[in-house]
Amino acid sequence: MALPVIEILGLTKDFPTGFWRKRMRRSLDGLTLAVEEGEIFGFLGPNGAGKTTTLKLLMGLIFPTAGTAHILGRSIDDTQMHREIGYLPEQPYFYDYLTARELLDYYARFFGYGAAERRQRVARMLERVGLADAGGVQLRKFSKGMLQRVGIAQAILHDPRVIFLDEPMSGLDPIGRREVRDIILGLKRQGRTVFFSTHILSDAEMICDRVGVLHLGKLRGVGAPGEILSMESHGMEILFEMRAGRALPADLLPRAAQTGQRYRIEVPEAELYGVLEQLRDCEARILSLAPVRPSLEDYFLRLVESPAATPAVEEPVR
């Protein structure tokens, strides 16, 4: 079996708080996780869950209190490993006295490219993130969305094998978000591994092979988005119309939501056939029958609302 591209073992980070009497606050608690090559892995969690802390630890910007992590088989302390990875920080801020072209050229210098190679790469990246016409504009004149695109460009400038993106869709309009999703999917097609944090769950649902849900510094679940959803107890939603002069059975009435002639009712799977028979008896016209699929958002919200809840899926190491 191939080694995971990202392997995190018991990563823990405490931060001191308070001025006089220093106390430690645990921001990340024993995170253990593995990401395979070519995956798009979504790292989900509300603000303060520990997502950015995890990414900063992996990038060597802060140091772990306990635990270790390896990327492409090399320790996160190994600076040379950074040749193979790209990183977009949360709410990126760049040298605003530089133009987008100068900034990318500056970052490209750290990979030893010659002047011609740098020029080509920078032009290609600006084109790829839709900033070809704004390459000569100083970054202080850029909007938040444009800065986010520059951030993505600098993260993938050197064709890294693993790309870490911290809230890449943040600050983008719907079109920009779709473009970023396309870029991420394009990276996957090239065989790259993408690890990105987000709290925009629909984005994660759409493009992730797997997601991990982090809450209060602890990993609460890991799995395919569908896998996480399948853990939920499903029900069925029935949409139907009543014929004129026919009344809904009394026991269904309190559970049904009415809009004009139409009714919508959610029933547990075990009761489905019984309810359908009742509806047939009263000559209701069934319009649709669909499983109630709780969204990742529902899952996420439930976790947030019950911090002590047992993890729905616990799959720390594959």
């Binding site: 990038m59 709410q91 970052y107 750290f110 993260a155």
Partner: peptide
């Protein structure tokens, strides 16, 4: 200003 974040993500000690 966190400009250092992007820089230290490169092979810079």
């Amino acid at each position: 200003k966190r400009t250092l974040y992007s820089l230290l993500a490169r092979p810079v000690r």
